[in-house]
Design a protein around this nucleic acid. Structure first.
Lengths: 213, 213
DNA sequence: GTCATCATGTAAGCCGTTACATGATTGC
DNA sequence: GCAATCATGTAACGGCTTACATGATGAC
């Protein structure tokens, strides 16, 4: 889970642990609570397995800079800029360890995204990183998930009523979640099948959970 | 998490581990994967802490029978019935250990339901068991959760567009989840405030996720 | 006879959390 | 001077998963 997300982020740009953590909070969704106590050991593991390489940030190494539009957290970048442009060219500020993904890491990333086991909480993250998959793998991934969700849905048709009101409401909520994930998946699958209309603004696509049957 | 759910189930009726597991699958929602390897140790812990008591099922103990309408999994009950009514009065079938909640357990259950820390995945379960709370505690619980969800919602207003389509869709999905939980919570809170209209069928209440702004 | 279901457990290992330890830099 | 932010780690602990071990009963 963590390793998946880390590899996903490092695929876009080289990063050091501290910055990584901030971006993880975004990728892993609300409620995510990645702590340094899990992040750093995870990075260590990744390094030992040869999935990432470390550069001890003597010089900013140019290529690592930042591919993404640099939105969001400005703190680190600004600080780096000041340090480089004002007082000292390279050095100071406690030697950041910058991590870069390796070829083995890229391969492993694809494997992890595609890995159906341990499915539940990981899936949103896997979709977020699905761009790294081939078109066919991605489609297959979505369809596997759809099958799994459908499976869960008709395992739980039993009770319907009786029981205590809070039990019932909780259950209804969870069923709705399943159904809304289904419609989301259908949208994903549909937009895989016919490549999206050129550009411009297409109306009503951002919100999923419609009204199920 | 597990202990919360176990105490919740034992509050309704005495059960042995195997049967407990089946009901847990329901209570904990789809995607739940409680294994015996976690269930039995958890029961052991609960016993050591004096939150449950064990009766080694020499005699079925009458009061344990089953308070609930006996829907769902019939296997165990049927087997027990056959064993009792046909061949042997009590005995045979590998001495089941039947667990019963204690007063301390009931107190702990209320504490656990109300406990806001470690909030995310537990909440649906806590709502399912919210019947064991006092009216005021329950309402407070729902409102605390609503505040938390609102908090998460406006932490993530940053990006909106740019980034890769799969990142965007994953994010949108998770935001929708937050919003749909919000409307669900509003329903819960509302129905706490004005005690529900007598009986009969009230239309359109089962499905939550409407169309947000 | 053999398989599925009922029934209870133990052991190894992973992954994650909290809490602790350290230390530089910047802003007030 | 002091606090916040940046930055990296270690140690103890907990809980859950997988896999293993055991054994009775009933259905086909």
């Amino acid at each position: 889970m963590l390793e998946l997300a880390v590899l996903g982020l490092l695929h876009d740009s080289d990063l050091h642990g501290y910055e990584l953590k901030k971006r993880l909070a975004d990728l892993l969704g609300p409620w995510s609570t990645v702590s340094f106590g899990s992040l750093y050991p995870a990075l260590g593991r990744l390094e030992r397995h040869g999935l990432v390489a470390v550069m001890t940030s003597a010089e900013p190494s140019e290529k690592s800079a930042d591919v993404s539009p640099m939105s969001g957290s400005l703190g680190a970048e600004l600080a780096a800029f000041r340090a480089r442009g004002r007082t000292r060219a390279a050095g100071g500020r406690r030697a950041r360890k910058v991590y870069a993904i390796t070829d083995a890491g890229r391969a492993e990333l694809r494997t992890l995204i595609d890995d159906t086991s341990g499915d539940d909480r990981t899936f949103a993250v896997r979709v977020a990183l699905a761009g790294h998959l081939g078109d066919d793998e991605r489609l297959a991934l979505f369809r596997r998930r759809k099958a799994a969700v459908l499976g869960r849905l008709d395992q739980r048709s039993a009770d319907e009523d009786a029981i205590d009101p809070y039990r019932r409401r909780s259950r209804a909520f969870q069923d709705d979640r399943l159904r809304s994930e289904l419609t989301w998946l259908d949208e994903l699958i549909a937009s895989e099948l016919h490549p999206q209309p050129p550009a411009g603004d297409d109306p009503a696509l951002s919100t999923s959970g419609g009204s199920p049957s």
